[in-house]
Nucleic acid binder design. Sequence first.
DNA 1: GTGGTCTAGACCACG
DNA 2: GTGGTCTAGACCACC
Lengths: 122, 122, 122, 122
Amino acid sequence: MIDFLPDKPIYQQIMEKIFGDLLKGNVKPGDRLPSVREYALEFGVNANTMQRVYKELELLHLTETKRGQGTFVTEDMQRLEELREEMKQTLVTTFLNQMESFGFTEEEIIVQLSSRKRGELN
Amino acid sequence: MIDFLPDKPIYQQIMEKIFGDLLKGNVKPGDRLPSVREYALEFGVNANTMQRVYKELELLHLTETKRGQGTFVTEDMQRLEELREEMKQTLVTTFLNQMESFGFTEEEIIVQLSSRKRGELN
Amino acid sequence: MIDFLPDKPIYQQIMEKIFGDLLKGNVKPGDRLPSVREYALEFGVNANTMQRVYKELELLHLTETKRGQGTFVTEDMQRLEELREEMKQTLVTTFLNQMESFGFTEEEIIVQLSSRKRGELN
Amino acid sequence: MIDFLPDKPIYQQIMEKIFGDLLKGNVKPGDRLPSVREYALEFGVNANTMQRVYKELELLHLTETKRGQGTFVTEDMQRLEELREEMKQTLVTTFLNQMESFGFTEEEIIVQLSSRKRGELN
DNA sequence: GTGGTCTAGACCACG
DNA sequence: GTGGTCTAGACCACC
């Protein structure tokens, strides 16, 4: 179920997965997340690696940690929406910049996008 | 003119830039590329870094080294086209996978893409 | 009314609050303090946490526990005065050491202190 | 020369020391800081601990790390000044809040401050 | 049981 | 040689 890319820090990949779960609503605001040790087992990583994941999530104000009780998803919906929007813009902007830097035309981009979507979604 | 992202290998960023120049036609097949030292100066990087760039470009068969004469862009147009297509697919696939993993809907993606394009291109 | 700092033990924060009440005279020597359970409810913390608060207060000879009757503020005024003086010195010394370790000049300290006081007190 | 307080993370204490050096001007903007390994030796801590120190300093935009070259003090003097001012305010505010929460009068604070200063500076 | 800190040591990517 | 990642395992503070 979990296979990490070799060229990207594991803790980042886990962060992104949890972040994705948050944005997709799989995890609700206020929910208690699994403990560091539980997640470490589930993902097959060291507890310290998970520790770091939670620390970074907290820096983004996505989670709050309550001493001795666990880690909780922020209830600040606005912050969540902000990050979601920010992420969307960043991904799209980065994508378009890359395409442009490699000289792909707008038409090519559209064609490729739609062909991929057909392949995926139909 | 050159500002490297801190989170990506410099040699890769330079590779991408040269690759982009190739794809965009700024550099023509058969053209002689600047020497390692020239480029190292231009980009303000270590000569070893440029060495690696050229090595990797050669592994992709994008360039050929002629002893004592310098490094030249491949004249194998087909190879160039192959890589161009491959790159296009990779970028688009990666982009869509990311968007999906963060739970963005197809509609959102379209809206964001078109709004960005308007901002950029008009 | 109660919001605990995340980076400091809750039991210490509660201790400081009660200590402050003592020093400010909100609570008089000989007064009976609320029971562990009452305080636990009021502060919204675990009863064990309050237990610890009382234990530490007793170690400081600030309170005395009478079996079956509850916890009472010490009537030893001298002890109270001692602790008050001690606390004052500790706080001031710590403050000055910190300011010094960050290289703030005596003048800066004075200016900042007086500007803050004006803002607060007038 | 270095003795760490037992009740505060070592990495924080080191951070504060370096931060203090920055604010005091012992280290100039643009200066290269000792490497992780050098500092680890000097402070007698693990290299990972120093790694963390540098990471946190970077989050504060106090340092910049150049791949394979080392860690450098930011040249953004404004950022430095900002943090200095912020730190000054935070320390003073925290100090006054604490004194107030323990019921010390303004006069007591002034007396204690000046007596400490005499002890220290004359 | 929870999260947080620290150490020791290995390995990698980069310049 | 530089910083960065990861693991393994110990120990602590808090609830």
